[in-house]
């Protein structure tokens, strides 16, 4: 029984229409289809007594129970539900094997990438703000998400909202991160430890943004930190958020809230700068939105600027003369 989790990892799959019954609580679930599979098991859409649910079965009983513990903690500490709520935990017998499973609320939504395909790029920033709001609550409760990545998120709605679907990597603050994915792990990029602290999640949150701008991801070169900075700078989608993302990547934020507030103010500023774009007053027009201004105005502005520049040069020249004569 101990060897269940050696490399063999007997991956077995349930088929659509198959029914499983819990050994302890006797609840029955009938499998509708597979939703996805990961390192610790497979998630299925199934129908239970009270409608559609998500059932996760695993070959590694220890990992499954660990995840259940995390889900239980979620229901214990939060007033607001962060992850999917836990419905049932049980085992079912399949041939000779006893297979552990747990049942969660089924969240209907789109993956981050699907969502961003159909929506304007500014949504990326808003989704990040939502994510940071939730992270703040999680951190305050003494937990760190750990394996934060697009695969573990879902956009539900409308109204559109980011939700967490896989909270298996969630770790108590101060411990070591249980589960991670290299691209989203600051240890991999040489930018910190794998200690569970808020800044670990904030790094991953910044990397999610980078991943949205670079859906193919990329491999680490020698100087991971510098490479990520370049990636942010070179993307038109990310560069407006450069200061926030870099602080997130370099572990400069102490809390998710701090990062969230910075993010919100960048999003606000972006909006206002666009609205105040066509100012009629002289000097600013030439550089900002010259093309839209009427020709006559433009001419006058150019003249005004020439005079301004001329008088400036004249003053500088005067100073020069004075300093020479002294």
């Amino acid at each position: 029984m101990m060897m269940k989790n050696t490399s063999k990892g007997q991956v077995f799959k349930l088929r659509a229409g198959e029914r499983i019954t819990g050994k302890w609580h006797r609840n029955e679930y009938s499998i509708i289809r597979e939703l996805g599979s990961g390192a610790t098991g497979t998630v299925y859409l199934a129908s239970g007594r009270n409608g559609q649910v998500a059932v996760k079965t695993g070959h590694d009983s220890m990992a499954i129970i660990s995840e259940v513990n995390v889900l239980k903690h979620f229901s214990r500490v939060q007033g607001k539900i962060l992850g999917p709520s836990l419905i049932d935990v049980d085992d079912f017998v399949h041939g000779q094997q006893q297979i552990p499973f747990y049942v969660m609320e089924f969240l209907k939504g789109e993956t981050l990438f699907q969502f961003m395909k159909d929506h304007k790029p500014e949504w990326a920033g808003i989704l990040l703000v939502q994510l940071l709001t939730d992270l703040q609550m999680l951190h305050q409760a003494g937990w760190v998400f750990g394996d934060l990545k697009p695969d573990n998120l879902l956009v539900v709605g409308p109204p559109h909202r980011v939700r967490w679907i896989d909270v298996g990597g969630t770790t108590q603050v101060g411990r070591s991160i249980k589960e991670y994915t290299e691209f989203f792990d600051r240890g991999y990029w040489g930018l910190g430890t794998r200690k569970a602290e808020p800044s670990y999640d904030l790094f991953a949150a910044s990397m999610i943004m980078i991943n949205l701008a670079y859906p193919q991801r990329f491999e680490k070169r020698k100087d991971g930190g510098g490479q990520l900075k370049e990636a942010v700078k070179n993307s038109s989608m990310l560069s407006p958020f450069q200061s926030v993302l870099l602080k997130g990547l370099y572990g400069k934020y102490r809390s998710a809230e701090e990062m969230r507030n910075d993010m919100v103010s960048v999003l606000n500023n972006k909006g206002t700068s666009r609205m105040s774009a066509p100012p009629a007053k002289g000097q600013r027009t030439a550089s900002r939105s010259g093309q839209r201004v009427k020709k006559k105005k433009k001419k006058r502005a150019v003249m005004f600027e020439t005079v301004l520049l001329g008088s400036f040069l004249f003053i500088v020249y005067l100073f020069y003369l004075v300093s020479q004569s002294m």
Partner: peptide
């Protein structure tokens, strides 16, 4: 451990 009910196992 596998023989314990899920709550205890947790």
């Amino acid at each position: 451990i596998e023989d314990l009910p899920p709550e205890k196992r947790g």
